[in-house]
Design a protein around this nucleic acid. Sequence first.
DNA 1: GAGGTCACAATGTCCGGACAAGGGGGGTTG
DNA 2: CAACCCCCCTTGTCCGGACATTGTGACCTC
Lengths: 257, 257
Amino acid sequence: MGKRDTEAAGTESPVQFSVDRNSPVPLYFQLSQQLEAAIENGRLAPGSLLGNEIDLAGRLGLSRPTVRQAIQSLVDKGLLVRRRGIGTQVVHSQVKRPLELSSLYDDLEAAGQKPATRVLLNTTTEANAEVAAALGIAEGAEVALVERLRLTHGEPVAHLRNHLPAGLLRLETADLEETGLYRLMRSAGITLHSARQAVGARAATAEEAERLDEAEGAPLLTMQRTTFDDTGRPVEFGSHVYRASRYAFEFQLLVRP
Amino acid sequence: MGKRDTEAAGTESPVQFSVDRNSPVPLYFQLSQQLEAAIENGRLAPGSLLGNEIDLAGRLGLSRPTVRQAIQSLVDKGLLVRRRGIGTQVVHSQVKRPLELSSLYDDLEAAGQKPATRVLLNTTTEANAEVAAALGIAEGAEVALVERLRLTHGEPVAHLRNHLPAGLLRLETADLEETGLYRLMRSAGITLHSARQAVGARAATAEEAERLDEAEGAPLLTMQRTTFDDTGRPVEFGSHVYRASRYAFEFQLLVRP
DNA sequence: GAGGTCACAATGTCCGGACAAGGGGGGTTG
DNA sequence: CAACCCCCCTTGTCCGGACATTGTGACCTC
């Protein structure tokens, strides 16, 4: 009886947003960024309702499709959940970042470690059967070969062996010592699109043990990865070995609905 | 001069689609499924153009937004690539399935292996610090504990230890021997939404070696995973050990644009 | 009081249109 | 002949509206 009809239902959100129509950045993107920031810093509490799309659109002077596009992008990121008949609510946190095509260099840097790289080899060679199959080229064809040792605090973490199609990109040893391979590829105009990975484990050979400062037979984490650009062309085949005592893969993933 | 204006530009696709407006399944979904099937079986060749959205909409009697929604869902899956000013192309194959929240049981079954499960333990216990932190509950609180040995062809592949919040779900040993844990959770109405995983490696302890029929010190692949439902509530914490000689994680992933 | 029924609220789907932005090709111009 | 410019094609963004579908809660009935 004494209830006002506009009274919010408890977990409603009073956060205000605004968009700039003169900005060249799309309206839906402006909104999604503001929403994401509000979720990130807790102004939009986990579990709280977002308020219905119609009102939100009205308050911002946007159309519903635009608002929906903004919300959808965050649903895709796993930050929001839509429930028909209920509303859109903020996921109960714990979600950080979904799995990306992780660069070891970026991973280490993000973890606060200061990664260093020692280039062991930067040359060309003939593709063996495995490399040829991964890169979709003929066996014996010329490919670029890079072998690197990745270190943090002066300690080796991983041995990285990468094969790239010939002529794709000019790799300077100096650049490789400075940053990660993916960054170099991206700045060369290559758009990384997808990758196929296999992660396993095996015991260290004598040579690997020597290189990584481990005992022979110590458990190592292995990863093989073929990366494709947006045309589906293989642009890189990596065969990496990590010291299990110093590195593990961590990632978040979403369930495809 | 002698060119007809409707002449396709070489790599155009002549594939026909159709939608049923009386079906309850959404129009955009009908179209995206047909597109996906056409890509899967090669009728839409890798690299070929899809034809512009306007025409496609016109031919199907749909609006452009609906067609775009269908196409977008396949772009999200990594099957298509859009280029402004050019058109939408089929990715040059190699893409199979992006990473899903993989169930070992489903993985093995999909690989043609016939997985079997031996339940070693199905009880409740008090959460230790690690489990409590993962499930977001108090240390010492009661949790369900399941330990299973997963086998193929009579050979052990992995030892699986799972902790679940008390009262979430009634786990019958008989069911656990028949199928995977995730299937049981899903059929209990729990919607799995996201997971946080860590994959590493270590040497087998004497007990693990015994259980998995490996030598002591053999390299093992380890995974720890906390799974969340769509409200962000932790619903499962798994601590698994795989025989590196018989199993590796394989997955495809997309680069977030 | 327990049950079902109905209205409401919210997202899901779909339409038709409009203009902007980027890429490519062809024509024009030097 | 080459460089530049302009036009056209395609996707990107955005709008306003319409109806369907699905949870929820209140109301009514038994």
